[in-house]
């Protein structure tokens, strides 16, 4: 394509089509690399590995919500559907095909994408209607998996026990790799014209089309990327815990927490969901350990305060002052 620098213009036109390479690299080096390094080192110095694993899972899910909600405006109240489907995709591969765990995690991602494809018609809905339909879809998947008639395939409501693949150390490594992948996707969205076009679609789909953006295609890609990371997270979660019931991996807590964490920090940024998970999930565990009797109260007040005073998330404290938050 034409990459000439036109007179009076400071940059070649083709730059806008491509990545903003300098900030892309900077975000990878200054945000993604330290975070991944921290979660690689922490198990050596901190004994509660389950807690660390849960942090990684919620970082993945909050960023997954960020991809679909932050960049396209679809609020996925049934986000856990992809997670649970991924967990059962993993379990079925391990139980029936004796698949090695890392491969089964990849299959879990594929299962997430396939469920996403099946649910693409939901993208015709908007706002609360999409959220409700997505919630219903997640419940439908739960009851499909938990159906006693499918006991020979999914073990139905009786839960699965995957003793053969039990290996929390490797599963943790897998989770950190998936987190790196997820953050990579978000950094790409944040620094590419693709991510900017997605935000344009979120703001006004008609105008985005008049800017030449293929609105349907963009929405589907973001939706499937979001489904992929949740499916992978579900797979690695199944690997880590190895014994679970449908109600565990389809618990609406996953959707709600991921959404609240992402919104608390601020969506459509890289930092927002990370800050949201670290602070809110940190407080969640802190209160849980120290004063569990006040847990619901404190947590509820905190979230209400956020919605009332910082509807655009913590990062809006900075963006309001005109600072650019990566």
């Amino acid at each position: 394509m034409d990459c000439r620098v036109k007179p009076g213009n400071d940059v070649p036109q083709c730059v806008w089509r491509n990545m903003k390479h300098d900030t892309f690299i900077r975000h990878l080096l200054l945000i993604v690399a330290p975070l991944i390094a921290a979660f690689a080192i922490l198990p050596g110095v901190y004994d509660n590995h389950l807690l660390l694993f849960n942090f990684v899972i919620f970082l993945i899910l909050a960023q997954g919500v960020n991809i679909i909600y932050g960049f396209t405006g679809y609020l996925p109240f049934g986000y856990v559907g992809f997670f649970g489907a991924g967990a059962y995709g993993f379990a079925i591969m391990v139980m029936h095909f004796q698949t090695p765990a890392p491969l089964a995690v990849l299959v879990a991602g594929v299962v997430g994408v396939l469920l996403g494809l099946l649910l693409t018609p939901l993208l015709r809905l908007s706002g609360a209607y999409f959220a409700i339909a997505n919630l219903a879809a997640a419940l439908a998947v739960l009851h499909f998996v938990a159906n006693p008639a499918l006991e020979s395939i999914t073990k139905g409501p009786y839960g699965v026990a995957l003793n053969g693949t039990f290996n929390p150390t490797l599963a943790y490594v897998g989770a950190v790799i998936i987190l790196a992948l997820t953050l990579g996707i978000v950094v790409f969205l944040r620094n590419s014209s693709f991510g900017m076009a997605l935000q344009a679609v979120r703001e006004d789909a008609v105008s985005a089309a008049m800017a030449g953006v293929n609105v349907v295609k963009m929405r589907v890609i973001a939706w499937l990327a979001s489904a992929l990371v949740a499916g992978l997270a579900g797979g690695v979660f199944a690997w880590y815990v190895s014994v679970f019931y449908p109600d565990n991996v389809f618990s609406s807590d996953f959707s709600i927490f991921a959404i609240v964490f992402a919104l608390f920090g601020g969506v459509a940024t890289i930092m927002g969901p990370i800050v949201g998970v670290v602070i809110l999930y940190g407080i969640y565990n802190l209160i849980g350990f120290t004063t569990p009797q006040y847990f619901q109260l404190i947590y509820g007040v905190l979230i209400m305060a956020l919605v009332l005073f910082l509807p655009a998330g913590l990062v809006s404290l900075a963006t309001r002052r005109g600072w650019n938050v990566p």
Binding site: K6, P7, N9, Q13
Partner: peptide, 15 residues
Amino acid sequence: EVALAYGRAEVAPPA
């Protein structure tokens, strides 16, 4: 920028 990136102008778009 969105329009510049996705408009697929046949001739180089204005600066």
